[in-house]
């Protein structure tokens, strides 16, 4: 008991320390590195909270994908130091901000402690009814069976975000290739990693997406790992992002949400309603939709990392 308390306390303190470092770090690169450490520690916290799916998602998205984006950004966002220091709020402002933010945090902590006991929640119900959709993993059952609308909207939002990032491109670059071009790494650790990891990663990612319906895993996590593998190969100069005008890219992006939406609408005719799975062939249908979703999540995350088109196709 004491050991687990100590461990939790340690993880919590480290998380906070990393967060504070992220804010206080002297350089932007140091801050981003601090943030990556924060993300890894947070993954640990999620594991301690018994949320393996979330830990995986945090590691894949919160650390890996966000980390790549931030590191790419920090490299490109050079200069402008004078304007930044000119825009820094005064000492009084900072003190006031600290005081007020601290007060909000305090109120929040007290409110969390005041939450009712025993905790209301849907844990038991979700667990008991996870089988209804033919999914053994309760998180997957919630995501696919009960809160399917969230997931549908989220997948649409992802497509939307990709388009939003693309649409920031200059007019003449429309239809071109997103992101900076990386020189091909012939040797060095990056080249080695980029050659060794992706084959493994692709297998792992696919497995995690596949196994998600029964055990910890899922499309988001699996898709994120696939995207990370592609990103590694991209940064190492082995692959190039596809042109955004390419039809296959767009189809890959919309495959998941479109399949989900169509299956949902089919449910209106064949099952209990929109986003209900027809009991007769729920399992194959879910697998089909999940496969499409994995593809779309992977494509969307990778393209979000790559950014708006910057070169002609």
């Amino acid at each position: 008991m004491t050991a687990s308390w100590l461990l939790d306390g340690l993880v919590a303190a480290l998380v906070l320390g990393a967060a504070a470092w992220t804010l206080a770090a002297p350089t932007a690169v140091a801050a981003v590195v601090g943030f990556l450490g924060f993300g890894l520690l947070l993954t640990l916290a999620w594991l301690r909270l018994g949320a393996a799916e979330v830990a995986m998602a945090e590691a894949a998205i919160g650390v890996a994908a966000t980390g790549v984006i931030l590191l790419l950004a920090v490299v490109r966002l050079r200069g402008g130091a004078e304007t930044v220091s000119a825009a820094m709020p005064g000492r009084g402002m900072v003190a006031a901000a600290g005081l007020l933010a601290g007060a909000v945090g305090l109120a929040l902590a007290l409110a969390v402690l005041a939450l009712p006991d025993p905790a209301p929640g849907l844990a038991a119900e979700a667990l008991a009814r996870r089988g209804e959709a033919g999914l053994g993993n309760p998180v997957a059952a919630v995501l696919t069976g009960y809160r399917g609308l969230d997931r549908l909207l989220e997948s649409v939002a992802l497509v939307l975000a990709v388009l939003a990032v693309w649409s920031m491109a200059p007019d003449r670059r429309w239809g071109g290739i997103p992101g900076p071009r990386f020189p091909r790494q012939e040797d060095g650790p990056l080249a080695l990693l980029a050659r060794l990891l992706p084959p493994v990663g692709i297998v792992v990612g696919t497995y995690i997406a596949w196994v998600g319906s029964e055990a910890p895993g899922g499309t988001v996590q699996g898709g994120a790992i696939l995207a990370a593998m592609w990103g590694l190969a991209w940064v190492a100069g082995i692959v190039q992002p596809p042109a955004i005008a390419s039809r296959p890219v767009r189809l890959a992006l919309v495959a998941g949400p479109a399949a989900f939406l169509l299956a949902g609408l089919a449910g209106m005719a064949l099952a209990e309603g929109f986003l209900a799975w027809p009991p007769a062939f729920a399992r194959p249908l879910i697998l089909l939709v999940e496969a499409a979703m994995t593809l779309s999540v992977a494509a969307a995350l990778a393209l979000l990392v790559a950014g708006p088109p910057e070169r002609a196709a």
Binding site: L253, M268, F274
Partner: peptide, 20 residues
């Protein structure tokens, strides 16, 4: 109630189709 589903699904599906 099905009207609500279509109110939501129509523009969402339209957006996906337009994007593709």
């Amino acid at each position: 109630g099905w009207l609500l589903v279509f109110t939501l699904a129509l523009p969402a599906g339209g957006m996906l189709a337009a994007f593709a």
